[in-house]
Nucleic acid binder design. Structure first.
Lengths: 156, 156
DNA sequence: TAAGATTGACCGCTCAATCTTA
DNA sequence: TAAGATTGAGCGGTCAATCTTA
């Protein structure tokens, strides 16, 4: 289907442009609402949400980076900021002295609970608002295919 | 369907996370390939591509900003950089002396032609690769609904 | 008074280099 | 020698302030 030295057809280009534009608007809106209402960027929220799913010991930095699709250095910088803000704390890794854990503080957990309301509301309203269960399944499968097609590269 | 004080269900959350992760991977890959092969960021490419669709006079800065979903100031900064690189030139607006036009130079047009190959290849391979025409229509309609739900806010 | 556009300070992200332990 | 993680310089984007013309 696809080859070097080739050009997108009209339907393909329009699909991509619709996806690009809508996605930028959605991410920007979500980021803005989280900043306004919880003083958190979308990237910060993604990190806290991941840590909220982990147990009380938190997660290894590398796992946190992988699960958010952030680079290692970005994860280090962002976690450092969240530590300064009091939402996250670091812990040594008992089994591998190169390793480092990040975990939510009580304050981080509270902040996450509040921010989740904003986050879920924006996603429900603007992304999922016009979709039924079938639409969601279609979108999810499409996106899983995209991810499968790309997985394996990332690092830092 | 959606209200404040509410939480995403499993299917909804998984749909969003699949979309978020795949989109980040795709945008990062596209940005990386454009930088490697054409020395252009994805944002630069979006601007050049829009100018490439305009006539030889180019576009007003505001129209360029709106069509790329960038803020006005970001558009100014980015166009300034592209002018320095020789891909874009500025022109005065004859009918409104507040206005400013940006247009491709010959070099910009050449650069766009090359970059378009990379751009289209990545999109065709990783986004559209596993879709048929119906899938594309579904995705496009979903994304148009998202955009409609968000349109009207942006400025700077 | 508002619209088009720009400016500069600040901040987060990327990249390459570095450090430490496996 | 490689893996986990961090560091700091450089750069692009945001935001608020500003300038000019409508």
């Amino acid at each position: 289907v696809t080859y070097p030295g080739f050009t997108l057809r009209t339907r393909e280009l329009e699909t991509w442009l619709a996806y690009l534009g809508a996605t930028k608007l959605l991410f920007d809106e979500l980021d803005r609402r989280l900043r306004d209402e919880s003083d958190l960027s979308l990237a910060d929220y993604a990190l806290l949400a991941r840590l909220g799913d982990a147990d009380e010991w938190g997660m290894r930095m590398t796992d946190l980076a992988d699960s958010t699709v952030f680079s290692r250095s970005r994860t280090t910088h962002a976690v450092d900021r969240l530590v300064k803000l009091g939402s996250v704390e670091r812990r040594a890794c008992p089994t591998d002295r190169r390793g480092s854990y990040a975990a939510l503080t009580d304050e981080g957990r509270r902040k996450l609970e509040t921010a989740r309301l904003t986050h879920d509301e924006v996603i429900a309203q603007h992304l999922l608002g016009s979709m039924n269960a079938d639409d969601m399944d279609v979108l999810r499968h499409q996106m899983e295919a995209v991810r499968a097609s790309l997985e394996g590269g990332r690092s830092d």
